[in-house]
Design a protein around this nucleic acid. Structure first.
Length: 679
RNA sequence: GCCGGGGUAGCUCAGCUGGUUAGAGCGGAGGAUUCAUAACCCUCAGGUCGGCGGUUCAAGUCCGCCCCUCGGCACCA
C-alpha cells in the first residue's frame, strides 16, 4: 500500500454551472476518496476549475467583463454547488493561479531543456477585426466540396467533407462576420513520438498502471497508429499563461489544465504545511495518483499528461479511472431539448443524499454509460434507503425507546452469526469501494438490512415485551448493531446518514471500517430516533428538470437578447430568384428509419397529381418516423434528384433548426392539397 | 468501414478461472403481520440465458459465423 494517495476528479470548465453529468464524476470520486479515508489511508482529493481558453475569453467578452471576473464568479458558483452535494474535496482551486502557472512553467522548461519542444510554422486564419487567430470552429464559410453555405471551419454538416478552414470558400469570422486573412504564425509543438517508449511502458498490461482494459486498448490504438506532434501554443490574445521565453505565445488550455491538479496540490500544501514534492516528485510506489475522468478526455490523460509528467520529472499517474456518460431517462442530455438537470436546481428540490446514493448504487468500475431514470431513482431510493435501511434503524431504536426504556442490551445470541456476516460484508465493501465498485459495496449494506429485517420479523420482539423484555431488548440491540454496520458501509456515500446514527447511538468516535464492528456497550442510553431518509415523489424530479432548463426571459427587454445564434441574413435578392424554386404541398404517407444512418429518415411523400416521391431527410435525431406520417409538409419539388448511399432522394423537405437534434419540419394546415404549389 | 461494450425474468442488472432443478433488486399478483417511515415478512416469474453451428462427460459461461443495440474512431483533440 502506498503511503499517500492523491485523487482528482476532472477539472470543471469554468464556462457554466455544474450539471448532473459533472456530479456523476464528482460523486464517484468523492465516494472513492471517503472510502479510502475511512479505511484509514492518507488520501487527498485535489480539485480545481479549468479556466483558460478561447470559449471563456469570448464569453467574458460577450458579457462585457474581464475573463478574470468571469472565472471568479463561476468558481464561486462551482464551489457552492459542489459543497451543496457534500463533496469532501480538500481543495477546489483554479487553474488561473500562481501555483498552476509556476508548475506549468516548470513542466514546460524541463521538457524544453531536454529538447522536447520544437517550432512549426502554421498558416492560420486571422480575423483583422477581432485581432485574433480563429480556431477552426470559429470560422464559417462555404463548403469547398458541396458548396453548402454556412459550414464550420473543420467539416461540412451537409456533405460530411472534412477540410482545413483555409480551403473554405468565402470564409468569415463567426464572431463578427469579417473575412479573415491567412497569417503565418510560429507554434510550439511537443513531438509525442519521442515519448513512445515511455508511454508503452506506462500503458503496458504487465506494468503497474491501473487502467481499464478497454481504455488501455483504446489508447494503444493511438500509440500503434503513430504518435503525432502536439501543438501546445496559442497566439495572443488568449486567456491563459504566457509561455516563458516565448513572448506572445500562450499555453494551450489542455497544456495547463491538468497541471491544475499540481497547482491545487501546491496551494493545499502551502495552506496545510505539507510538501508538494511528497506527492508530485515521489515514486508511484510511494504516492498513488488516481485520476477520475470521463471517456471524452482519455486522450489527454493517458497520452499527453503522463508523457509530460515523465519528461518533466514529476510523478506519473498510477491509475486513470474512466466513467461513461450520464443519460436522462435514456436520452442524451440536451439543454435545447429540455433534457437537462443542473446541480443547483436539484439542490433546490431534494437533499444531496439521494442523488449520491442513486449514482453510487449504479456505478461500477466499468465505463458504461449510466442512465438517470426517474422511476428507477424513486424506486431505488424508496426501496433501499427508506424501506430497508432506514426502516431497520427506525423499528429497533423506536422499539427500545418506546417500550424498553431506551436502554441498549447485549445483542441476542441467535443473531451472532448474522452480525459476524455483516461485519465481513463491511470489509468486503471496503475493498469494493477501493476498486470503484460502489454499486456492489452498497449492495452489501442492503444485504445486511434484508437479513435483519427478516430476523426481526421472525424473532418478533413485540410479542415478548411483557413475557420476556430482556429477550426483546437483545433482539432489537442486534438490530441496532446491524444499523451501525450498515451506516459504516453507507458512510462514504451518505456521510450525513452516518453522522446522524453516530449521534443517535452516542458513539465515542466517528465510524470507520475498522471500528464498525466494535460492540456497543450494554446499558447505553439511545438518543431519540431522527428520520434517516424520507420517501420521495417522482414529481420532485420532474420539477427539477423543469427548473434546470433556462426559461425564456419573462418580458421582452427593450433590446432583445437571445441565448442562441442564427445564421446571418443572406444577401438581398429579387423575386426572380424565388420563382425557379418550386415548392409543393406533400403528404407524408410513409416514413422509416434508414438503417446504418444516424441522421436520415426515408419518407414517401404524396404530391397528389404529381405522383409520389422518395425523399431522404436528415431529421432522424429530431423525429420518430411515425410522427411524420399523415403530416402535410413543404417539399422542394424541382430539386435535382440526388443519389445517396441508401437510394435516390427526389426532393427536399423544408425544416428549420440549427441543431440536428432540434429540427422542426414545416407543417401545413390540413386544408392544403398535396401537389399545390407554394408561392 | 474500423475498434470497443452490450444482448440473461415486465424493468435494472449479478452470474469469477465451464459442473447439481439459471440468480438478485424493483415492479406486479396473492397471503401473513403490526415493532417500524401504508414500512417489514412469506409465496408466486415456468425466462429458447440474441441466433446458428462447434469443442466437451458437461456451456449464459470456451471457439466460429451471423443478427440486433449502444458508444468511439474515420476530421479534432
Amino acid at each position: 500500500m502506498s503511503s499517500r494517495v492523491l485523487v482528482t476528479a476532472a477539472l470543471t470548465y469554468a464556462n457554466g454551472s455544474p450539471h448532473i453529468g459533472h456530479l456523476l464524476e464528482a460523486i464517484q470520486t468523492d465516494v472513492y476518496v471517503r472510502a479510502r479515508k475511512l479505511a484509514g489511508e492518507d488520501v487527498v482529493f485535489m480539485w480545481a476549475a479549468d479556466t483558460h481558453g478561447t470559449p471563456i475569453q469570448l464569453k467574458a467578452r460577450d458579457l462585457g467583463i474581464a475573463p478574470e471576473e468571469l472565472i471568479k464568479q463561476i468558481h464561486a458558483d462551482h464551489l457552492e454547488v459542489y459543497r451543496g452535494f457534500d463533496l469532501g474535496f480538500d481543495i477546489y482551486h483554479t487553474t488561473h493561479s500562481d501555483e498552476t502557472k509556476f508548475h506549468a512553467e516548470q513542466v514546460f522548461r524541463a521538457i524544453e531543456q531536454a529538447g522536447g519542444v520544437e517550432t512549426r510554422e502554421v498558416q492560420q486564419l486571422y480575423c483583422p477585426h477581432d485581432q485574433m487567430f480563429l480556431p477552426d470552429r470559429f470560422v464559417k464559410g462555404t463548403c469547398p466540396k458541396c458548396h453548402s453555405p454556412d459550414q464550420y471551419g473543420d467539416n461540412c454538416e451537409k456533405c460530411g467533407a472534412t477540410y482545413d478552414p483555409t480551403d473554405m470558400k468565402e470564409p468569415a469570422c463567426s464572431l463578427c462576420g469579417t473575412k479573415p486573412v491567412l497569417k503565418g504564425s510560429e507554434h510550439l509543438v511537443v513531438p509525442l513520438g519521442k515519448h513512445e517508449t515511455f508511454l508503452r511502458s506506462w500503458l503496458a498490461k504487465e506494468g503497474s498502471t491501473q487502467l481499464q482494459e478497454s481504455v488501455r486498448n483504446y489508447v494503444m490504438t493511438w500509440v500503434d497508429g503513430g504518435l503525432r506532434d502536439w501543438d501546445i501554443s496559442r497566439d495572443e490574445p488568449y486567456f491563459g499563461f504566457e509561455i516563458p521565453g516565448h513572448p506572445g505565445k500562450y499555453f494551450y488550455v489542455w497544456f495547463d489544465a491538468p497541471v491544475g491538479y499540481i497547482g491545487a496540490t501546491q496551494k493545499w500544501c502551502n495552506d496545510n504545511n505539507k510538501n508538494v514534492d511528497d506527492y508530485w516528485r515521489s515514486t508511484p510506489a510511494d504516492t498513488e495518483i488516481v485520476h477520475v475522468i470521463g471517456k471524452d478526455i482519455v486522450y489527454f490523460h493517458c497520452l499527453f499528461w503522463p508523457a509530460m509528467l515523465n519528461a518533466a520529472g514529476y510523478t506519473v499517474p498510477s491509475r486513470v479511472q474512466v466513467h461513461g456518460w450520464l443519460t436522462i431517462n435514456g436520452e442524451k442530455m440536451s439543454k435545447s431539448r429540455g433534457i437537462f438537470i443542473s446541480g443547483r436546481a436539484y439542490l433546490e428540490h431534494l437533499p444531496p443524499a439521494y442523488l449520491r446514493y442513486y449514482l453510487a448504487a449504479k456505478l461500477g468500475s466499468g465505463q458504461d454509460d449510466l442512465d438517470f431514470n426517474f422511476e428507477d431513482f424513486v424506486n431505488r431510493v424508496n426501496a433501499d434507503l427508506v424501506k430497508k435501511a432506514a426502516n431497520l434503524a427506525s423499528r429497533c431504536i423506536k422499539f427500545i425507546g418506546g417500550r424498553l426504556g431506551g436502554t441498549l442490551g447485549e445483542p441476542a445470541d441467535d443473531a451472532a452469526q448474522l452480525l459476524a456476516t455483516a461485519a465481513t460484508r463491511v470489509q468486503e465493501a471496503k475493498d469494493l469501494y477501493a476498486a470503484f465498485e460502489s454499486g456492489r459495496a452498497l449492495r452489501k449494506a442492503m444485504e445486511i438490512a434484508e437479513d435483519f429485517n427478516l430476523y426481526l420479523t421472525n424473532a418478533a420482539p413485540w410479542k415478548l415485551t411483557k413475557s420476556d423484555p430482556e429477550r426483546a431488548r437483545a433482539i432489537c440491540s442486534a438490530g441496532v448493531m446491524a444499523s451501525k454496520l450498515i451506516a459504516a458501509i453507507l458512510k462514504p456515500v451518505l456521510p450525513r446518514w452516518a453522522e446522524q446514527l453516530e449521534t443517535m447511538l452516542g458513539l465515542p468516535a466517528p465510524l470507520t471500517f475498522a471500528n464498525a464492528a466494535e460492540p456497543l456497550p450494554a446499558g447505553l442510553e439511545l438518543g431519540k430516533y431522527t428520520a434517516l431518509a424520507e420517501p420521495i415523489d417522482i414529481k420532485k424530479l420532474e420539477a427539477i428538470m423543469e427548473a434546470s432548463v433556462p426559461k425564456p426571459p419573462p418580458e421582452p427587454e427593450p433590446e432583445r437578447s437571445f441565448d442562441y445564434e442564427v445564421e446571418p441574413l443572406a444577401a438581398e435578392t429579387s423575386i426572380d430568384n424565388f420563382v425557379p424554386i418550386d415548392l409543393r404541398v406533400g403528404l407524408v404517407t410513409a416514413c422509416d428509419k434508414v438503417k446504418k444512418s444516424k441522421k436520415l429518415l426515408q419518407l414517401t411523400v404524396d404530391l397528389g397529381p404529381l405522383g409520389t416521391r422518395n425523399i431522404f431527410s436528415g431529421i432522424s435525431q429530431s423525429y420518430a418516423p411515425e410522427e411524420l406520417v399523415g403530416k402535410k409538409v413543404v417539399v422542394y419539388a424541382n430539386l435535382k434528384p440526388r443519389k445517396m448511399r441508401f437510394g435516390l432522394s427526389e426532393g427536399m423537405v423544408l425544416a428549420a433548426g440549427a441543431d440536428d437534434t432540434a429540427i422542426t419540419v414545416l407543417e401545413l394546415h390540413d386544408r392544403a392539397r398535396p401537389g399545390d404549389r407554394i408561392t
